[in-house]
Simulated assay, not measured.
Amino acid sequence: MSLRDAGAVEAFGALPDPLVAAFALVTLLGDVATYFLLFSVLYWLGDRTPVIGDRLDRPLIVQVVALGFTALALVTVLKHVFALPRPPGAGTPVAVAGVPDALRPLVRGATVDDGYGFPSGHAIGSTAVYGGLGWLVADESDRRPLYAGATIAVLVSLSRVVVGVHYLGDVLVGVALGVALLLVVTRYFPTPARSFPAAGVLAAIGLVAVGPTEYLLFGLGASLGATAAWWTLGDRIPDRARSGREALVTVVLGILVVGGLLAVVAALDLPALGTVVAVAVVIGALVAVPVAGARVDAALG
């Protein structure tokens, strides 16, 4: 029995198949691709986001995105520093009965992972991002957003043990590091103009320390692109959409522009420096989209 686990992987692995399948889907909420899609749309919609829009503005959402970039760089560096393995069988999909055919590929993909296991990137990321969003949105009179964000973070973290790709200790330390990261960033880097450069510096240090990994290249490029866009356009980016139509126009433009750029980047075989530059362009465009959205909406009358 691993000292990092205390038998938790084996115990959670004995849960009923439907529950394991449900946790496999929950773990997808902690994937980088999910963060990218979810927070892009939240940023473009801003205060027009259904249900929680009255609590949101674009600088707040962008600050949460910066937290995500920082978490990505931090966990990549720490995994290489500790170089601890995942549980046995982490590279083999969990056999779960009774899963609908449409969901089977998602469940299978969510129950495998490779690379180093400590600390859990899903735990750090979900705590910093979902917990961070809840913390920044909550106020003294209503703490429900914080509780909701913390609940999502706990479920995502726990799901990593249920599907057998992390030990319990990996996620407990990951949650603790996510909370610490949230405290540090909100205390010392409280605005996107500060937090994006900080994330970039951490990614650059990681590249020097551990080499050009995929996530560090992405993190450096994303931080550089977001920093350039925010420093250049920050005062011109509308904090809030003036109407539902403007928010919709912004989302459509974002999907077309950012989706098109991503398709081009995916089709290219880029070296490390080229990847950094390409990601910087994509994220810079993502941040700038609300400016274009406001102008197009105004032109439509």
Rank of each mutant, 00 (worst) to 15 (best):
A138G: 11
E140S: 15
E140D: 15
S141I: 12
D142F: 13
D142M: 13
L146I: 06
Y147G: 13
G149L: 11
G149W: 00
G149F: 04
A150L: 11
A150E: 03
A153I: 08
A153D: 05
V154I: 15
V154G: 06
V154C: 13
V156H: 09
V156R: 00
S159H: 07
R160P: 09
R160W: 15
V161W: 04
V161A: 08
V161L: 08
V161F: 06
V161Q: 00
V163P: 03
G164E: 06
G164Y: 07
V165Q: 10
H166I: 12
H166E: 15
L168M: 10
L168K: 00
D170I: 02
D170S: 05
V171K: 10
V173T: 00
V175R: 03
L177T: 00
G178T: 05
L181A: 00
L181K: 02
V184Y: 01
V185M: 07
V185E: 02
V185W: 01
V185A: 09
R187H: 10
Y188H: 13
F189S: 02
F189Y: 13
P190R: 10
P190H: 05
T191C: 10
P192F: 05
P197H: 08
A198M: 05
A199I: 06
A199E: 01
G200C: 06
G200A: 02
L202E: 01
L202I: 03
A203K: 06
A204G: 09
A204F: 03
I205F: 06
L207Y: 11
V208R: 04
V208Q: 10
V210D: 11
V210F: 05
P212F: 03
T213G: 14
E214G: 14
E214C: 12
E214P: 12
Y215C: 10
Y215R: 14
L217T: 00
L217P: 00
F218N: 07
F218H: 13
L220V: 07
G221M: 03
G221N: 04
S223M: 00
L224Q: 01
T227W: 01
A228C: 12
A229N: 02
A229P: 04
W230G: 10
W231T: 14
T232V: 14
L233A: 14
G234L: 03
G234H: 06
P238W: 15
R240G: 10
A241T: 07
R242S: 14
R245W: 15
A247D: 08
L248C: 14
L248R: 14
V249H: 06
T250P: 06
V251D: 02
V251C: 00
V251R: 09
V252N: 01
L253G: 07
L253N: 06
G254K: 14
G254H: 12
I255N: 11
I255G: 13
I255M: 13
L256N: 11
V257S: 14
V258L: 06
G259V: 11
G259I: 00
G260I: 08
G260E: 11
L261D: 01
L262P: 12
L262R: 14
L262F: 15
A263K: 11
